[in-house]
Design a protein around this nucleic acid. Structure first.
Lengths: 245, 245
DNA sequence: CGGCAACTTGACAATGCTCAACGCGGGTGG
DNA sequence: CCACCCGCGTTGAGCATTGTCAAGTTGCCG
């Protein structure tokens, strides 16, 4: 059910930034313990905790979220294979948000000490820094998305982003990705109600921009969807500095 | 017009995280060149550029923003005295957003090389890392704010945050801060139209929660405003690990 | 005094929310 | 094997929030 990509997916992601010396790749491999499987809709780290391990997602979908009184919640980022949940834990002792799974996930727990070993390698340190900065850039783009785009474009934009990110780690084939997410969760992501989310989705389907059934999202016309949603992949800073430099 | 706090304000901010060794403070001072003044509503760095210097705001208000086709824009963060504009420039060559002043600002330009000197000091490196993480946490909180709060609470929340941040660097006295921002800019911050922003402001005034005139914001009842807006300062991770640990 | 930018106001339209009900399908227990 | 239940998706109707347009008003500055 859950892909066993393990360290491959992380390596693949880090090398989006730049190639790593063989010794670093080796180290990366050593650091990866055996993974475990976490059921869907389960917290990996909860707000207020002070996690001791860093968690790496190697399969499935997870998210960062905050719950407000009244029970409403807002998902503030998605974690896909290759993403870390807790890199800030070195500096900020207490989590100011929760991390939970959306689908069933494969998770690797890495003790802080091992991360410190990684950071001692300059190339790895830079790569991990890059990861953190891309996360930040993504969250800025989400702000634009939620603040300034209407419902259909908002959802379309999210789909474009997820496709780009999954493609980067080899998890997308011709516009098709696994998206094991309920409409409720989607609504909490884009800041809309479930009902409205449902209608916006139908509108995207009617426009023949996407297909979404049984957790499989197909982007039927990438170029048109990107234009429609105002999507521009710059903020993901992928691509070896080519389009970036 | 613009306060001449210079390095004081940065030091003050960094020591929110933890005290610095005297040698580090000294180094911090050396790194600060003479500042310059930037007019209001002017870009400091534009999207697409690859800045060579890092810019530190020492007076006034600036912001990060993105413009979408159609001319609408979204402000994604505020920069107040003590904030850096460009720390990511070491890793991400091209800016994926612009940084511009809101009011007249005092800005200190710091060459990359000098920042590298700072980062070699462990205590400073950690403090700067903390700064980056708090920025990220803030942007997550903004996501919650824009995604899940109604207009009045949204604006109220922003006001609470700005007050907390300015107070931390000594720029707030009993609930009063300078807020040299037009309603248009405020609207672009909270993701609302100007007209609606105006009405929400009036509603906050009518509820005797705030006062805002001539760029002076007074929070009349901090506790009530915080409750009303769902504000909880945790995400700012201020306070020497005291309330944080 | 004139001009311009920021702020206000009113009226109306569009977007999005809530409530409530129903269908479908997979999983469970009888 | 069937009946039921429950989560998820879907629909309709009415209401609330927010946006747009257009026209003042205010206050500062030249």
């Amino acid at each position: 059910m859950i892909a066993e990509l393990q360290s491959t997916v992380l390596l693949r992601k880090l090398e989006l930034f730049g190639e790593l010396p063989p010794a670093d790749k080796q180290l990366l491999n050593n650091v990866m313990s055996r993974g475990r499987v976490v059921r869907g809709h389960t917290d990996i780290v909860a707000e207020g905790e002070s996690p001791t391990d860093v968690h790496l997602i190697t399969g499935g979908f997870a998210c960062r979220y905050k719950t407000l009184k009244g029970g409403t919640r807002q998902i503030v980022s998605y974690l896909v294979p290759g993403d870390f949940t807790d890199l800030h834990t070195f500096i900020l002792s207490k989590m100011d948000h929760s991390v939970g799974t959306l689908s069933e996930c494969a998770v690797v727990d890495i003790p802080r000490s091992r991360i410190l070993e990684l950071i001692e390698r300059p190339a790895l340190a830079r790569a991990l820094w890059w990861v953190a900065l891309v996360d930040e850039a993504t969250s800025r783009e989400w702000l634009v998305n939620i603040g300034r785009r209407r419902s259909e474009a908002r959802i379309g934009h999210l789909f474009c982003e997820l496709h780009a990110r999954l493609k980067a780690v080899g998890l997308a084939v011709d516009g098709k990705i696994r998206l094991p997410i309920t409409q409720n969760e989607l609504a909490d992501t884009v800041g809309l109600s479930v009902v409205h989310t449902n209608r916006a989705l139908q509108s995207l389907r009617a426009a023949k921009l996407i297909t979404l059934e049984r957790s499989e999202l197909v982007i039927l016309d990438a170029e048109r969807l990107q234009k429609f949603s105002g999507f521009n992949a710059n903020y993901l800073h992928q691509g070896l500095g080519k389009q970036d430099k």
